[in-house]
Amino acid sequence: MFTIIDRYIIKKYLGTFGFMLGLLTIIVLVIDVQAKAPRIESNGFTVSEFLVNFYPYWILNLIITFMSILVFISVIFFTSRIANNTEIVAIISSGASFHRFARPYLITSGFIAIMALLLNHLVLPLANTKKNALEPYTYTAVSRDEFTGSSEVSTQLSKTEYIFLKSYNKKEKRGSGFLYQKFDKNHRLIYQLNASEFYWDKTKNQFVLSNYLEKTIKGDGTEKLGNGNSMDKSFGHPPEELFPDVLLGQNKTTPELLQFINREREKGNANLNTYLNELYQRTSMPVSVIILTFLGLSLSSQKKRGGLGLNLALGIALAFVFVFSFEVLKVVSENKTLTPLLAMWLPDIVFGPLALILYFKRANQ
């Protein structure tokens, strides 16, 4: 059963967190809409369309990304206030231990962490699908072309099969300069298919190749040639799976992402760190909610000279270091300097023991 103190702290925690959440949402939304409105309108959309079809999903992604910061600042803010009002001293003087005082912090942070886990693994990917469909139209022209323009693309279908595209437009799912090659176990070319133009036919779930030329190389070295005006060809997966971009991992629920990663490993794809970072961060970030809750409690539960302002300044600095470290470690992992598992858990590994040390130091005072 929750005591009056438990309910009081939980109410303070959730109330402050909700206020911070609402404040961040309003401020960031207004700033972002004003900054991106010219780009949105220059691409043939209206701001109102984006307010309905883009920003609700974008805000959910933003909330999950900065949830650790919001929790940390919220804990420091309301804990510093009750500490300055000597409420913590009164609670502990009544016979309650510091561990007992910290129980509602654990309950509330655990609840938020569980909700964040569910959102990260199952709900956020569905929101990202909506967000990522429109987000390129908020970028600069150069950045937008990476997602909506044409570029040279290559992919590995299996350990012996490759596709090379001289020009491919991801938005229109068509291009030119198609080349498919298949090798035997001795790395000898046994089949090659060229086409001048190609596009993805959604109704057939196949590529349609125009002006194709195919070459089959037999065991004795002789070649069999074939050509035609049109050919339907399936490679087992739609273009989004065959030619994935960096946003694909965000659009998949965790079961789907695991299947995709396993399939890419079977194909021999060694460039999976972007998707592995996404997978591991979905769990490590919610765990950080509990870590930062106890770090914030330990730093702000004593009345200090400088009061709330000093605690908030320290809290904001530490919180941004924590979240910024995730972004830096993503880049380090994608460059294969660290494994994705270590990179995405390293902030928790560093801040977790720090939070424990400070917590027990505070509890024993």
Rank of each mutant, 00 (worst) to 15 (best):
Y180I: 03
Y180S: 09
Q181L: 13
K182N: 11
K182Q: 15
K182F: 10
K182E: 15
F183R: 06
F183H: 15
D184W: 02
D184V: 02
N186H: 14
H187K: 11
H187F: 15
R188G: 07
R188T: 15
L189P: 00
I190F: 05
I190S: 01
I190R: 07
I190T: 15
I190H: 00
Y191I: 03
Y191Q: 14
Y191N: 06
Q192V: 04
Q192D: 08
L193H: 06
L193Y: 06
N194G: 00
N194I: 00
N194V: 00
A195T: 00
A195E: 03
S196T: 14
S196N: 06
S196Q: 15
S196H: 12
F198D: 03
F198K: 04
F198M: 04
F198C: 01
Y199F: 11
Y199A: 02
Y199D: 12
W200Q: 01
D201Q: 09
D201A: 13
D201N: 13
K202Y: 09
K202W: 06
K202C: 02
T203G: 03
T203S: 13
K204T: 05
K204F: 08
K204A: 12
K204Y: 07
N205A: 15
Q206P: 03
Q206R: 07
F207D: 08
F207R: 06
V208T: 10
V208Y: 03
L209D: 05
L209I: 10
S210L: 12
S210A: 08
N211C: 05
N211Q: 13
Y212F: 15
Y212E: 04
Y212D: 01
L213P: 00
L213A: 07
L213G: 00
E214C: 03
E214A: 08
E214Y: 04
K215Y: 04
K215N: 01
T216N: 01
T216I: 10
T216Q: 08
I217Y: 04
I217V: 12
G219E: 11
G219Y: 04
G219F: 08
G219N: 15
G219D: 09
D220F: 07
D220C: 03
D220G: 04
D220T: 06
D220R: 05
D220K: 01
G221M: 12
G221E: 13
G221N: 10
T222W: 12
T222N: 12
T222C: 02
T222D: 13
E223Y: 09
E223W: 11
K224M: 05
K224R: 14
L225D: 05
L225F: 12
L225N: 13
L225W: 13
G226H: 00
G226V: 02
N227H: 06
N227D: 10
G228M: 07
N229G: 14
N229Y: 12
N229D: 15
N229L: 11
S230P: 00
S230N: 05
S230Y: 11
M231C: 05
M231P: 01
D232C: 08
K233S: 10
